[in-house]
Amino acid sequence: MQMTFRKYMSHKYFFIMLLPVLLYYLIFHYAPIYGVLIAFQDFKILKGITGSKWIGFDNFKDLFTSMYFLPVLRNTLIINFYKLIFGFPAPIILALMINEVRFTIFKRVVQTVSYLPYFLSWVVLAGIIIEFLSPSRGPINVALSMLDYKPIFFIASVDWFRSVLVSTEIWKTIGFNAIIYLAAMSGINPEMYEAAEVDGINRIQKIWWITLPSIAPVVVILLILTSGQIISDDFDQVYNLLNAKVMSVGDVIGTYTYNEGISKMNYSYAAAVGLFKNVIALAVVLFTNTLAKRFSDETIF
């Protein structure tokens, strides 16, 4: 115990630097957990949490019997499944391609252009996307018109809206997420590539037999963390692109919770929805982590 305390004291300045981060999570992530109690109450703002009536699991009963929740849950799972299948490998592929580029200036330009959208809010990006996909003046529909095809209103089409969500999510995050894999690739011993060249291995074989196995631990850990998002959604993205014509395929848990909690002021029901979502997300992460233990030594705990 004394040795442990001495170790902490010897690194006290690092812990002081870490203190603002710990305070941030304590104040904005852990302290609000107390508010989860309203999911089990008939919460009234004027009465507060301590004065509101306890109703047990009634909000959850309403949740599972609601005619609107199951379609919303289905939309959330389908959209996030597509994002996981197509979005998770995308930054890995981009990082592999950038890593193979030998022209430094070109590599830097590609990196900058690819991760620039990440720093723009969905309010800005939604305006750009809506204009870009406009049926009257968007470049895609202008090209379709030139080829004698009918313009497609992608944002208002039930057949295309989910594809728009998935593709724009990839466009926004691919460059930033690729940085993680590029950092992992930078730690690979160059002697491994030199030895492979002596053995006559080409570039594709180097990627398959050296690069991918070397970054596999990072891939596994990020896959475990990403799996929890299968029940979550990017509220900012969906809310700014959603419209009445695509509610049947685009209304997700985030927008449903917003409408119930903010628009209808049904705070207890909205809290129940949020708690259900978080519990499922935790269960998925734990399951994925357990599954990863069977096939790999790299897990988050």
Rank of each mutant, 00 (worst) to 15 (best):
K61H: 14
G200L: 03
P217V: 08
Q205K: 11
A272V: 13
T112D: 00
N177R: 08
M9V: 15
T76H: 08
V279H: 05
F176P: 03
V142P: 02
V284C: 11
L275D: 07
V110K: 03
I174L: 13
D62G: 11
I16H: 11
S214K: 10
S263I: 15
S268Q: 04
I262P: 02
R102Y: 01
R102L: 00
M17C: 10
P71W: 04
G48F: 04
L116S: 03
R102D: 01
L22Y: 09
P20T: 15
A216M: 05
S268I: 08
V113T: 10
F235G: 09
V249Y: 00
L116E: 01
N75T: 14
Q2D: 01
N75H: 13
T288F: 09
M265L: 10
V238S: 02
K264Y: 14
S66H: 09
I300A: 06
L133C: 13
I180R: 07
N240M: 07
F154K: 15
I179S: 05
V164L: 08
L63K: 13
I210K: 00
I93H: 07
V246Q: 00
T50P: 00
T65G: 03
I231C: 10
A90G: 05
V164H: 10
F64P: 14
H29P: 07
I93A: 07
F43V: 00
A184H: 01
Y239M: 14
I140H: 13
F176M: 09
A283I: 10
N177E: 05
